[in-house]
């Protein structure tokens, strides 16, 4: 009795095993062994800063040769070299470092406050207030730190009512850009010498009423720039970093001192 049970189970087990071996061979998915090796090198934040959907997707793209070996901005040059070794290519020049930048300088001492707000302490909630938040400026940083909450790298903090990016820690993953309900954060080259630190699109008199550090859209900067890098976009100065040479003439002339050296 016991023997027949053992025999039946053993035979069944053997058959199953054979089936598994056969199907394993038959339906094998070809993977590049380099893909998992590349994945090992990547930091695993899944932040999406590379432009792919997480580290797995970037590893697959690198293995296929669609993405550069130094495609991970978080890892930077060291990870780039590791990946290059796996792929057997040269790491090449490091990618230009990019960082997030908050287009607002409306700290507590220069902008006026409309009201005292109590309630949910997030920027999205403050946006539902009439007049968009506590500050009189309806375009400025709300200061409730939704960007800071979204950042995985501890690179953005609210200081004196305005979000400030820590350029050494920022990897330009873009999480804060998506989190800011005012759309004030943009990704700029870290080497960019100048930046317009205001996002108010109203005309001068309206801006002056609400903030001492606001772009009044006078256009002096546009006239100063010899390279055509500065334009006015809806009453606010805008610098095209492709053209900007960093001469600083726009910043010199800016009456509101809102084009600043970074």
């Amino acid at each position: 009795m016991i023997i027949s049970t053992v025999v039946v189970l053993a035979v069944a087990g053997l058959l199953m095993g054979l089936l598994l071996v056969f199907s394993g061979e038959k339906f094998k998915v070809e993977t590049d062994p380099r893909e998992s090796a590349v994945r090992e090198c990547l930091p695993g934040n899944n932040c999406g800063a590379c432009g792919y959907a997480g580290c797995d997707a970037l590893a697959a793209a690198i293995a296929k040769g669609e993405a550069p070996v130094n495609g991970c901005p978080v890892g930077g040059a060291p990870v780039g070299e590791q990946v290059a070794r796996v792929m057997g290519v040269e790491a090449g020049a490091a990618r230009e470092k990019r960082v997030a930048f908050v287009r607002c300088a409306g700290t507590c001492d220069v902008t006026k406050n409309n009201c005292v707000y109590v309630g949910i302490s997030t920027c999205e909630a403050a946006m539902t207030l009439p007049g968009k938040g506590v500050k009189a400026c309806t375009y400025g940083c709300l200061g409730y730190g939704s960007c800071a909450a979204a950042c995985q790298f501890d690179a953005i903090h609210v200081v004196n009512g305005v979000a400030v990016v820590d350029r050494t820690k920022c990897v330009a993953c873009g999480k804060c850009v998506a989190a800011c309900p005012q759309g004030l954060i943009e990704i700029v080259p870290d080497a960019a010498p100048l930046a317009v630190q205001c996002g108010n699109r109203e005309k001068g008199p309206i801006v002056r009423k609400v903030c001492d550090a606001g772009c009044i859209g006078c256009g002096l900067c546009v006239r100063q720039c010899e390279h055509g890098a500065v334009t006015l976009q809806g009453n606010t100065a805008h610098i095209d970093y492709e053209k900007c040479v960093g001469c600083g003439k726009c910043a010199e002339k800016c009456p509101a001192k809102i084009i600043r050296n970074r």
Binding site: G119, I120, E124, A125, M127, T128
Partner: peptide
Amino acid sequence: QLFKMTKG
């Protein structure tokens, strides 16, 4: 307030 914001 939360619902108003979430709806938005």
